[in-house]
Design a protein around this nucleic acid. Structure first.
Lengths: 208, 208
DNA sequence: CGTCGCTATATCGATTCGATATAGTTGTCC
DNA sequence: GGACAACTATATCGAATCGATATAGCGACG
């Protein structure tokens, strides 16, 4: 789970632990409110298995190509202010390796274990997937949500008091809205696939 | 977290591990999709610290063979089974103790650490709280949700591709709906408090 | 007969959490 | 100017939790 998230973020450029956590919190919100006690061991794991490598230097982000995204901009600002001297505590900047990219794609396409958290995570990285995998992910998730609706206690259960009933109702509504969301995404995927399959009339100005 | 859930369920009567897990799944759905690897250690914990006790229930068969020779003892066990000892594997039925009820109320009113999971859990057990504690729980949760909205990445972030943006949007919508839900609950609590404060008249007595 | 599916408890290694320690940088208030 | 809070940054520890797996009993199906 965390490996996938970290590798996905590192796909956008080298970063260090503290920054990775910030981006996990802001980009994935409640879904990935992860503590340092998870991040640093996870980075060590990924380093020992060769998925990432550390980049030396106090302000090493200048080495990264301009694909550096928001965090790169941040670090660049700070580096400029410090004028190249190594500032702050020595940062351990991690960069994803070729083996790491392969591992990332493996994790991404691993169809087992997709709860709410890892589904949203995978979907956020869906641009790295082939279109069939995207559709498969969405439809697997949809099936799970529908399944969940049938298993969950209904709000007309006479055993529940007001509070438990409210929780049950709210949860069920959330699941229904998730299904509607996934349905919209599935439609968009299919429309996109159709557009790609029949590009004769529409624009395809990407090549040239 | 799990202690709270288990004690709360055991407030409604003695149950065994497998059943507790089923009820966690059906009543709290995705919020408490908990594995046996958590439940049984948690029950042991609660038993050693005196919050629960095992009650002899159902049909204790006591079939355990003392040796390791599986195949040999199997026929003997089967014979015993046919001889009239019925019932499944011996259930360990747990019952909450007086100390357990106190511990439950302590956990319930402990204001630290209320993420989405433990908030919903606490709310589902809100009937065991005094009204002030209910209001405090709801308002704490509301503040957290609002706070979360400000910290999260906005959907107009140019860095995000379609998929990441969709996840961000959907998450933000979910948080907004959670806020609306909590607001409804807060209003209901206040109305209830007013009604309790003036029990003589059930009308909307304004300017008596 | 086998074996599949359900109930039921238990354990194991790995992962994750939550708290805490440490330390450098920055701002700011008196 | 210097005390002090706040933020950045990495690391570690014990405990909680997960996910997989093992064991075991029972009913039903063909």
């Amino acid at each position: 789970m965390l490996d996938l998230a970290l590798l996905g973020l590192l796909e956008e450029g080298p970063q260090h632990g503290y920054e990775l956590r910030k981006r996990l919190r802001t980009q994935f919100g409640l879904l990935a409110n992860v503590s340092f006690g998870s991040i640093y061991p996870a980075l060590s794991r990924l380093e020992t298995n060769g998925s990432v490598e550390t980049v030396e230097g106090g302000s090493p982000v200048s080495l990264a190509p301009p694909t550096g995204s928001l965090s790169g901009e941040w670090a660049a600002m700070r580096a400029r202010r410090r004028a190249g001297t190594r500032g702050r505590r020595s940062k351990k900047v991690y960069r994803i390796t070729t083996a790491g990219r392969e591992f990332f794609l493996t994790l991404l396409s691993d169809s087992t274990a997709d709860d709410a958290r890892s589904f949203s995570l995978r979907l956020a990285f869906a641009r790295h997937m082939p279109p069939e995998a995207r559709l498969a992910l969405l439809e697997r998730r949809r099936a799970q949500l529908v399944q969940h609706l049938t298993e969950v206690v209904t709000a007309d259960d006479p055993e529940l008091d007001v509070y438990a009933r409210s929780v049950a109702e709210h949860t069920a509504e959330g699941v229904e809205q998730d299904i509607a969301w996934v349905d919209r995404l599935i439609s968009a995927e299919r429309a996109n696939a159709d557009a790609s399959a029949v590009p004769n009339r529409r624009r395809t100005r990407r090549s040239a």
